[in-house]
Computed example of a mutant assay.
Amino acid sequence: MIRAYRRDGSAEVIGTEPQTSQFPEDIVWIDLIKPSRDEEQFVESCIGIQLPTPEELKDIEPSSRLYVENEAIYMTASLIYRADSSHPLLTDVAFILYRGRLITIRYAEPKAFALFSANLLRLNGQCDTGAKLLGHLLETVVDRTAEILETVVSRLDSLSITIFVNRKAAKRRPPRFLEDKLLDIASHHQLISKLRDSLVSLSRLVIFLQSQPVVRREEEAAELCIIVARDIQSLGEHTAFVGNNITFMLDASLGLINVEQNAIIKIFSIASVVFLPPTLVASIYGMNFQFMPELGWTIGYPLALVAMLLSAIIPFLFFRWKGWL
């Protein structure tokens, strides 16, 4: 699908067979969403440059993601989408600046694009060039990243309270409670990792964009790039801090699991030690030798029971006195 935006913020969907072979002069943004090959060829014929293929968007080398060719500035960034689901993903989005227009190519729908296109009319014609529009779009992408990070931090705070603070409810926890929480921690770690990858790619893109003459000539676009670069840096630091907290929470949860397992093993160890002396007494007097003087005693059986009981109580009291229970 090809969606074109005018300078006033209005948009329209363009087919591959229009009346003319050129886009109107007031079109400042051409957004290709999951384009077919026919749509790509149509846009190429209208604007006069080659568009990157999906395979080229996946290249990770800086020379393949950030370059200038035939007066067109090609940039590719990895943006996160489906952040609210259990399986967040990264998608590669191409940004192309050419002769005052912005061309974007994407094969997914990050929420930042929907937010930006919805607010485009409110900018009151401020995005009259592709460079300015790209600056505002990147600002929206960074704001959406900050929103996702804030949501993750809030969820981690709730998870931390559930695991560490509410110790009174620990005895009423269902089996494998902490093991299930490890899965939640792992999902948050995966989301944070993808956020860091996205911020790194955005940082490289903004630094490259700031060095381009078309951006330096426009004061507003240059200021937007500076603001976006600062926001990306602060978000990167905060993301690293959150990542360290997740690592601590993971290690602490594993430690709590080991503590609970050790407590269970300790109970079995103490039980075996407590019942070992009575077992020894019962084994001795359970032997059927002919010459055992205690077998002829009238009170032999009660004495054996008392000896078994004392041999169990004395180790128990000793362990309790040592504080091992």
Rank of each mutant, 00 (worst) to 15 (best):
A131E: 15
L134A: 15
G135I: 11
G135Y: 11
L138P: 11
E139Q: 11
V141A: 13
A146R: 03
L149T: 02
E150H: 03
V152A: 05
V153Q: 10
S154K: 05
S160L: 03
I161F: 01
I161Y: 04
T162M: 12
F164W: 06
R167T: 08
A169T: 12
R173F: 04
P174C: 01
P175W: 02
F177M: 02
F177A: 05
E179H: 13
E179F: 10
L182S: 09
L183Y: 07
L183G: 06
D184C: 02
A186S: 14
H188D: 02
Q190N: 06
S193F: 01
L195Y: 00
L195C: 00
S198I: 01
L205C: 14
V206R: 12
L209M: 14
Q210E: 14
E218L: 15
E219P: 13
E220Y: 08
L224C: 11
L224E: 11
L224K: 14
I227Y: 11
I227V: 14
V228R: 09
D231N: 13
L235E: 04
L235T: 01
L235P: 01
T239G: 06
A240M: 06
A240G: 09
A240W: 03
F241Y: 13
F241G: 06
V242K: 04
V242D: 03
G243I: 04
G243T: 01
N244Q: 12
N244M: 05
N245Q: 12
I246W: 09
L250F: 10
D251V: 05
D251F: 02
A252M: 09
L256K: 05
N258Q: 09
A263P: 07
A263N: 15
